[in-house]
Computed example of a mutant assay.
Amino acid sequence: MEFIYTESELNSIAKQIIKSASSKMLAFYAPMGAGKTTLIKALIKELGSSDNVSSPTFGLVNEYALESGELLGYHFDFYRLNSEEEAMDMGLDDYLASKGWIFMEWPEKIPNLIPNDVQNIKIEIIDERTRKLTLS
């Protein structure tokens, strides 16, 4: 499934991803500046959280909750990892075993640790304002 969109259409794109996703584990493949975090922010909002969403670049993982306080899920940014062992040391297995949504930026840094049932999302930059998203 493919979508061509601009930032003004993110809420609609988020709804379609949630409706179409084959898994609650989403792996985002995209170059720097393509809008991974911006899209994840729209997804988290659409799923019912009002938490402040930011890239967990330095902390590696952010946790988000629903208005009720119930866990919504976890947002990872693996960009700064130097090895898959670092992901294991942070307890990645435990996070992946949770019932919550999993949002992974830079999953290519940990290829052997990505579950088979993950929903891959590829974002390509078409121009300054337009992106192409592919769910596979």
Rank of each mutant, 00 (worst) to 15 (best):
38 T>F: 00
124 E>L: 01
127 D>G: 04
79 Y>A: 12
99 K>S: 15
120 N>V: 14
112 N>T: 15
14 A>F: 06
13 I>P: 07
95 Y>Q: 04
98 S>T: 15
124 E>A: 11
91 G>L: 05
130 T>E: 13
132 K>G: 02
15 K>Y: 11
5 Y>F: 02
51 D>F: 08
58 F>G: 08
91 G>R: 06
136 S>Q: 14
68 S>F: 12
66 L>R: 03
6 T>Y: 00
123 I>H: 01
86 E>R: 04
121 I>N: 02
32 M>Q: 12
97 A>H: 10
58 F>P: 12
21 A>W: 05
103 F>R: 07
55 S>D: 11
112 N>Y: 07
95 Y>W: 03
119 Q>F: 01
19 K>C: 13
82 N>I: 11
91 G>E: 11
6 T>K: 09
120 N>Q: 15
77 D>E: 02
83 S>T: 15
80 R>W: 03
20 S>L: 09
62 N>Q: 09
118 V>W: 04
56 P>K: 07
45 K>N: 14
101 W>F: 08
85 E>A: 11
117 D>H: 12
6 T>P: 04
77 D>S: 06
42 A>T: 09
64 Y>W: 01
101 W>Q: 02
8 S>H: 08
94 D>Y: 03
109 K>I: 06
58 F>L: 00
83 S>P: 11
33 G>H: 03
79 Y>N: 13
123 I>Y: 05
134 T>E: 12
49 S>R: 00
125 I>C: 04
68 S>E: 14
44 I>D: 01
32 M>I: 14
82 N>K: 12
58 F>D: 11
118 V>T: 15
51 D>E: 03
121 I>C: 04
122 K>S: 15
98 S>H: 10
78 F>D: 08
131 R>A: 00
76 F>N: 04
106 W>G: 02
85 E>K: 09
29 Y>M: 05
43 L>F: 02
113 L>R: 01
122 K>C: 13
83 S>L: 10
24 K>Q: 10
110 I>G: 07
71 L>G: 01
27 A>F: 07
36 K>L: 09
28 F>S: 02
29 Y>K: 05
87 A>F: 09
128 E>P: 06
104 M>K: 02
57 T>V: 00
41 K>Y: 05
76 F>Y: 08
20 S>N: 14
131 R>M: 01
33 G>W: 00
61 V>S: 05
127 D>W: 04
18 I>T: 12
14 A>K: 10
73 G>S: 06
123 I>Q: 08
113 L>P: 10
119 Q>C: 02
90 M>H: 06
95 Y>E: 09
15 K>D: 14
91 G>A: 06
130 T>Q: 09
114 I>Q: 07
121 I>W: 06
33 G>F: 10
103 F>Y: 07
65 A>K: 15
74 Y>Q: 10
75 H>Q: 13
3 F>I: 09
84 E>Q: 12
91 G>F: 05
94 D>A: 03
7 E>P: 00
82 N>D: 14
33 G>I: 13
117 D>K: 07
72 L>G: 05
61 V>M: 03
27 A>S: 10
66 L>G: 03
40 I>N: 02
136 S>I: 13
52 N>W: 15
96 L>I: 09
13 I>T: 10
43 L>V: 10
93 D>A: 14
133 L>P: 03
133 L>R: 04
10 L>G: 07
71 L>I: 13
111 P>E: 08
83 S>H: 10
98 S>V: 13
57 T>Y: 07
67 E>T: 15
37 T>G: 08
